[in-house]
């Protein structure tokens, strides 16, 4: 029995988790029927605090996410968790195992966990993840945690525009250096050195603090990202992390940056969607008889250079759009 988008919307607002789950599936599948429900949901979202959690594989993100969620549950706040893992570029399949480390949350109806495969999408992933965030937001989750492997550009995009972005590292393995390379030093609002009982933890903290101090463009009134040590497995440092998150939120509200962040996020979301639409339109144009095929042939014959060809396509698209 399939529900209409309107049914899903109605049920979701009434707190039906199956409706939320089904709508997320439609979004993941890029099913056009999701559009209508998303449209209606948009005005109901905006209440939740969105936390991004990223870091290298093995740094303990899932356990940290689990402990943080537990903390919020103890405060009687509801939690949504989105775990994004890479899909195989060859088969499109994925093994999503984050739930394994979140067992103590299972069975709690106030915690909604969704595992997503990245489905090899450039840009598309952030669009889908944003939609899922909005769904859980409208579904009434007080805190929404988005967890990704901080391995590539796409994953960073996903957490970049959350309200509070947490970057997780652990001692050893040159993770601190990795952080700069991948450019996640810029996006982190809070840094966590997890597994802090291991050798080299004080050094990892010191290195991170030094790098953060020397970060360019740091002004007096700007947020100073704290470095927090945790032992997620033992549950240590979680209260401190939660306190840092609410301090960050407090800072965002007081400084007016929350609004700015929201605008930034909306802008990024819009840009992603536009990118997706335009590139799809361009791809379609290239497939079209006479236009794209002809251009490509002319390029191959060296009659026209790629830049001029691109200009022609853009002109064609604009003209068609105006029609």
């Amino acid at each position: 029995m399939k529900d209409s988008p309107n049914d899903l919307y109605q049920k979701l607002l009434k707190g039906d988790r199956r409706a939320a789950a089904r709508l997320i599936t439609l979004v993941e599948n890029a099913d056009p029927s999701a559009r209508q429900a998303l449209k209606m949901l948009h005005r109901h979202s905006g209440g939740g605090h969105i936390v991004g959690m990223t870091g290298s594989p093995g740094s303990g993100k899932s356990t940290l996410t689990c402990r943080l969620a537990r903390h919020y549950r103890d405060e009687d706040r509801s939690v949504g968790i989105i775990c994004v893992d890479p899909s195989s570029p060859f088969t499109g399949g994925a093994l999503l195992g984050d739930r394994v480390r979140m067992q103590e949350l299972s069975g709690d109806p106030e915690v909604f966990i969704r595992s997503m495969g990245s489905r090899g999408a450039l840009g598309g992933l952030s669009v889908a993840t944003n939609d899922v965030i909005n769904i859980l937001d409208a579904f009434g989750k007080d805190v929404i945690i988005v967890e990704t492997v901080g391995a590539g550009q796409v994953e960073i995009e996903v957490v970049k525009y959350t309200h509070t972005c947490i970057v997780v590292t652990m001692p050893g393995g040159g993770d601190e250096i990795q952080a700069i390379k991948a450019g996640i030093l810029e996006i982190g609002d809070i840094f966590v050195v997890n597994k802090s009982d291991r050798d080299g933890a004080p050094r990892a903290v010191a290195d991170l603090e030094m790098m953060l101090e020397t970060k360019p463009g740091t002004s007096e009134e700007a947020w100073k990202p704290p470095v927090i040590t945790t032992m997620a497995l033992a549950g240590e440092g979680i209260d401190e992390l939660a306190a840092a998150i609410s301090a960050h939120r407090g800072f965002l509200v007081e400084s007016g940056l929350l609004e700015e962040k929201t605008v930034q996020r909306m802008r990024a979301e819009l840009l992603e969607i536009l990118n997706l639409k335009v590139s799809r339109a361009a791809e379609n144009a290239l497939e079209e008889e006479g236009v794209g095929a002809e251009l490509v042939r002319r390029m191959a014959d060296r009659e026209i250079d790629p830049h001029s060809a691109a200009d022609e396509v853009v002109e064609y698209l604009l003209k068609r759009a105006g029609r």
């Binding site: 356990t63 195989s88 093994l95 195992g97 394994v100 497995l233 033992a234």
Partner: peptide, 13 residues
Amino acid sequence: YGKFEESSILVES
């Protein structure tokens, strides 16, 4: 001593 926390090792291709 507390509980054991599972961290399953999923098979890589």
